[in-house]
Amino acid sequence: MPMANNPRDAGPLDLANLKRLAYFAAVVETGSFTAAADRLGITKAVVSQQVARLEREFRTTLLTRTTRRLALTDAGQAFYERCARILREAAVAFDELADVSVEPAGTLRLTAPFDYGLAMVVPAVVEFSRRHPQCRVEMALSDQPLDLLSNEVELAVRVGWLADSQLPARRIGSFEQKLVAAPALARQVDAAAGPEQLAGLPFVANAALKEPRRWVFEAGDGRRQAVEFAASISLDATPAGLGWTLPSGGIHAVYPASRFRPAKVARFVDLLGELHAARA
């Protein structure tokens, strides 16, 4: 394929350049040419050559390379943001096409947090298997997030706040956080004038949370109050009368950063969303 004299001559629909968008985005998201090649299923040399050609043809440095790391230039950062947006839109287009033209088949590999998985995902798997008996489901329940790529996971259900915002995700529900107390502590809780007065009470920390002992309360007028608890015992009844709430969190379906999303994944996420809506 001859090189264009002017980089703009290639035009926005040049297929070779569109493919390079995916190569470049994979390098940025994985942090190396080797990892990008593994994700894309091609050789490191191809990825390196195509990104270098992209820079050469458009006379712009996108990445600075050292022996230890890659870094985006300002032009590279701006270009990546547009690349990511284009690739997300392309993925959605392919997903929609697959969703209407292909019946779910094969094995669906998914992961979810333990408690949420038992309460919501297991019933969804049972119903999914009833609707699509030609599919098998392999499910790993773990409160430690699994890496989707290395564990060959096609779908992760994440409860809370997404740590990796670069992976494609769909919000399927939400949850409220509540601080609860045993009946023996109810009098002390009721007497508290604000969240800070709860800090000295016995407390159990949820190790699945990022900051299990630090809780941020919000008043009706928007004021926030952070409280650092000392973990000790389990609490199991609701306190009342403080007039403060804890922030709600999201429940998301998180997908690997791949071009295609099988119909089995899309249908399962739709089903899980249906179950959430029914319980709301």
Score class of each variant (00 low, 15 high):
Tyr116Ala: 05
Asp115Leu: 08
Ala124Ser: 12
Ser142Gly: 14
Val122His: 10
Ser129Asp: 00
Val126Trp: 03
Ser129Ile: 06
Glu127Val: 05
Met120Asp: 10
Leu141Lys: 10
His132Ser: 08
Ala112Thr: 07
Phe114Val: 09
Asp115Tyr: 01
Met120Ser: 13
Val126Ile: 08
Val122Thr: 13
Ala112His: 02
Ala124Pro: 02
Ala119Phe: 04
Leu118Gly: 00
His132Asp: 03
Val121Gln: 05
Met139Pro: 01
Pro113His: 02
Leu118Glu: 06
Leu141Tyr: 14
Asp115Gly: 04
Asp143Val: 11
Pro123Ser: 00
Gln134Phe: 13
Val126Ala: 12
Glu138Leu: 13
Val121Met: 10
Thr111Gln: 01
His132Leu: 09
Glu127His: 08
Glu138Phe: 10
Ala119Tyr: 01
Glu138Arg: 15
Cys135Trp: 07
Arg136Lys: 11
Glu127Asn: 10
Arg136Asn: 15
Pro133Gln: 11
Asp115Asn: 04
Ser129His: 11
Met139Ala: 15
Pro123Gly: 01
Val126Asp: 13
Arg130His: 14
Glu138Gln: 12
Pro123Thr: 07
Arg131Pro: 08
Val122Trp: 01
Val126Glu: 06
Tyr116Pro: 01
Met139Cys: 15
Ala112Pro: 01
Leu118Ser: 00
Asp143Met: 08
Arg131Tyr: 03
Gln144Glu: 15
Val122Pro: 07
Asp143Ile: 05
Glu127Leu: 15
Pro123Met: 05
Leu118Val: 07
Tyr116Lys: 00
Ser129Thr: 12
Glu127Arg: 14
Cys135Tyr: 08
Glu127Asp: 13
Met120Asn: 12
Val137Gly: 04
Ala119Ile: 09
Val137Gln: 08
Pro133Trp: 09
Val121Asp: 01
Gln144Phe: 06
Ala119Met: 11
Cys135Arg: 13
Thr111Gly: 00
Glu138Asn: 06
Pro123Ile: 10
Asp143Ala: 05
Val137Pro: 02
Val121Ser: 04
Gln144Pro: 00
Leu141Trp: 02
Ala124Thr: 11
Met120Glu: 06
Arg131Ile: 02
Ser129Val: 11
Ala124Phe: 05
Gln144Cys: 04
Ala119Gly: 08
Gln144Thr: 12
Met120Gly: 00
Pro123Val: 03
Arg131Trp: 04
Ala140Asp: 10
Gln134Pro: 10
Tyr116Arg: 03
Asp143Phe: 03
Ser129Arg: 11
Asp143Tyr: 06
Arg136Asp: 15
Asp115Ser: 08
Ala140Ile: 15
Pro123Phe: 06
Val126Thr: 14
Gln144Ser: 12
Pro123Leu: 05
Gly117Ile: 08
